[in-house]
Simulated scan of single mutants.
Amino acid sequence: MGVKIGVLALQGDVAEHIAAFRECLADRPGSTVVQVRRVADLADLDALAMPGGESTTISRLIGKNGLYEPLIEFAGGVFATCAGMVLIADRVDDPRVRTLNLIPMHVARNAFGRQVDSREGYLDVAGLAEPFRAVFIRAPVATDVGPQVQVLARIPEGVAAVRRGRHMAFAFHPELGGDLRLHRMFLEGLEV
């Protein structure tokens, strides 16, 4: 059965998310990956990717495009990376960001500091047999998560990956580097 994935295409690494999900869905006939910029674009989606980028800019553009309520009410799963993790939290350390309250967690933006402090490394992720090469770019971290949130990975700065129901959020960029295990894990969670 085909799956329809949307990628919030307001700002950030949209093309990388589209390419990763298209590759994951290549063996599923009838599956599509589409860009989401307007409320109408959310129709018939099974899931939505919220890419990294600049969280205050994406927050402002969500509001400008009238997407806040539709995103909050979206019934599909959400795959959120970096700035997306900031946006789906219920609390964030920056009053300029209006969150979607999809996962009960407190997120600290730019927890690593400046761009020069970005890094990559191998990370143990619950559910994966081998470590995942994680790319952290001015990354956030969750400093506190609700009891119903499953922590998938931690780093010294805080929580780097979580799952709640059909939603997954990552402080890093799983769409970079060609390792699609987390995308596949997310897609499997949609079928539950």
Rank of each mutant, 00 (worst) to 15 (best):
A169L: 01
L102R: 15
S55K: 13
L152D: 00
R163C: 13
G63M: 10
R166H: 11
D41A: 12
A20V: 10
P156L: 08
I58R: 07
P174E: 11
F74K: 12
L8W: 01
E157N: 03
Y122T: 08
S55T: 12
E188V: 10
S118I: 08
A80W: 02
G177D: 12
R22D: 13
V192W: 10
V92Q: 01
Q150W: 05
A169T: 04
V39C: 10
S118N: 01
L100W: 10
R166W: 04
N110T: 06
M185T: 12
P131K: 05
L48P: 07
P156W: 05
G53W: 10
R98C: 06
A26W: 00
D46G: 11
L180C: 04
D44V: 12
A49N: 03
V135N: 05
V135R: 08
R109G: 03
S59K: 05
L42V: 14
C82N: 00
F186A: 11
R163V: 03
C24S: 14
L100Y: 04
A129W: 01
P131C: 01
V159Q: 07
E23P: 00
A160W: 04
R138A: 03
L182N: 09
E130G: 03
V116K: 03
D13C: 03
L182K: 10
L100N: 08
R138M: 04
D144L: 12
E73D: 13
F170A: 12
G2V: 05
D41M: 09
G52L: 09
P131V: 02
V86W: 08
L182F: 13
G6F: 12
P156N: 09
R133S: 01
L152S: 05
S59Y: 03
L48W: 00
E191F: 14
V97I: 15
G165P: 06
E191M: 15
R22E: 15
G53H: 01
L190N: 08
G63Q: 14
K64R: 15
P70V: 13
G76I: 07
V78M: 14
D27N: 15
P70T: 06
E54F: 14
F79M: 11
A153S: 13
A15F: 13
I18Q: 04
S31Y: 11
D93S: 05
G189F: 10
P140H: 06
V125Q: 04
R109H: 07
D93C: 12
A15D: 14
A40W: 01
R60Q: 14
G158Q: 00
L182D: 04
R164E: 14
S59F: 01
E54C: 12
F186S: 01
I137L: 11
F132N: 08
G63R: 15
R60C: 05
G77P: 02
V107F: 09
G63F: 11
A89E: 08
M185A: 15
L187W: 10
R60V: 06
R181Q: 15
H173I: 13
D94Y: 03
A111H: 11
L187E: 11
D117G: 00
Q115C: 02
F136I: 13
E73G: 09
F79R: 06
R98M: 09
A134E: 02
Y68G: 05
N65H: 15
R114E: 04
V78Q: 01
D41T: 10
P104T: 08
R166I: 05
G113T: 04
